[in-house]
Computed example of a mutant assay.
Amino acid sequence: MESAYTAERAVSPTSGAVRWVVVESRTYALHPEATGYLASLRARGCSPNTERVYAGRLALYLNYCHMRRLQWNAPGFTGLSLLQQWLVETPLPARTGRRVPQRVRRRSRGTANAVMTVVGEFLRFGALQGWVASQTTDLLAQPRLLRFTPPGYDVGERGQHRQVRAAAFRFKTAHPGYQGASVLGW
């Protein structure tokens, strides 16, 4: 896949401050909305590493939209669900420049969930700025009923707080458990 957008590290010539931006690959023109979102991360006090990772994930999303000829601010339900599948099915490029046959690497479902989280946050930020329609952000979450609640969670007098909004585009992933003493044979 030819990249139309890339995440770049920008250094201010006056202050020397390092910022992450998303630019078009050919012209190095800033993507104003993605760069605005990254600036909002800085304003909220997020880590520079968070900004760096989010910049790469935004560039990945914008490249996907460019490749599929989707408007980034109105991908639709089908576009978002295909993005989720594309993230785990598309092989990643080789880490080395050698042309030695290697095992095909793919993103894990957990990584796809992380990318979809960034995309969702970006689209919600865009809705607050007026760049994204509210119909698009309505697709990002769905109502879910909590059967079991965490300790101390107040469900309300009539259970009205049992219904929460959960991410719509999320793979179910299994978390590895802890290895106990009985498994070790002690």
Rank of each mutant, 00 (worst) to 15 (best):
2 E>R: 05
3 S>N: 14
6 T>C: 09
11 V>A: 00
11 V>C: 11
14 T>E: 15
18 V>W: 02
19 R>I: 06
19 R>L: 13
21 V>P: 00
23 V>F: 00
25 S>T: 12
25 S>H: 10
28 Y>Q: 13
29 A>K: 06
30 L>M: 10
30 L>R: 07
32 P>N: 02
33 E>Y: 09
33 E>R: 12
39 A>R: 13
42 R>C: 09
44 R>D: 13
48 P>C: 01
51 E>P: 06
52 R>S: 02
52 R>C: 11
54 Y>Q: 07
57 R>F: 03
57 R>W: 13
58 L>A: 01
59 A>Y: 01
59 A>S: 03
60 L>S: 08
60 L>N: 10
63 N>S: 05
65 C>A: 13
65 C>N: 13
70 L>E: 03
71 Q>T: 15
72 W>E: 02
72 W>K: 04
73 N>A: 15
74 A>H: 09
75 P>A: 02
75 P>S: 02
76 G>D: 10
76 G>W: 08
80 L>N: 01
82 L>F: 07
83 L>N: 05
87 L>E: 01
88 V>M: 12
88 V>A: 08
89 E>V: 00
92 L>T: 05
95 R>T: 12
97 G>S: 12
98 R>I: 04
98 R>E: 14
98 R>S: 14
105 R>S: 03
107 R>A: 13
111 T>W: 08
113 N>T: 03
113 N>E: 11
117 T>N: 01
120 G>A: 06
121 E>L: 10
122 F>G: 00
126 G>Q: 03
127 A>G: 00
130 G>T: 00
131 W>L: 15
131 W>K: 14
132 V>Q: 07
134 S>V: 07
136 T>Y: 00
137 T>V: 15
138 D>R: 15
139 L>H: 00
144 R>P: 00
146 L>G: 01
147 R>G: 10
148 F>C: 14
148 F>V: 11
150 P>K: 08
150 P>E: 15
153 Y>M: 03
156 G>R: 02
156 G>W: 06
157 E>Q: 11
157 E>V: 03
160 Q>K: 09
161 H>P: 05
162 R>V: 02
163 Q>E: 11
163 Q>A: 11
164 V>A: 03
164 V>D: 07
164 V>F: 05
164 V>T: 08
167 A>D: 13
168 A>N: 10
170 R>Q: 07
173 T>F: 02
173 T>P: 05
179 Q>H: 11
180 G>C: 07
182 S>A: 10
183 V>G: 01
184 L>P: 08
184 L>N: 13
184 L>A: 14
186 W>T: 03
186 W>G: 04
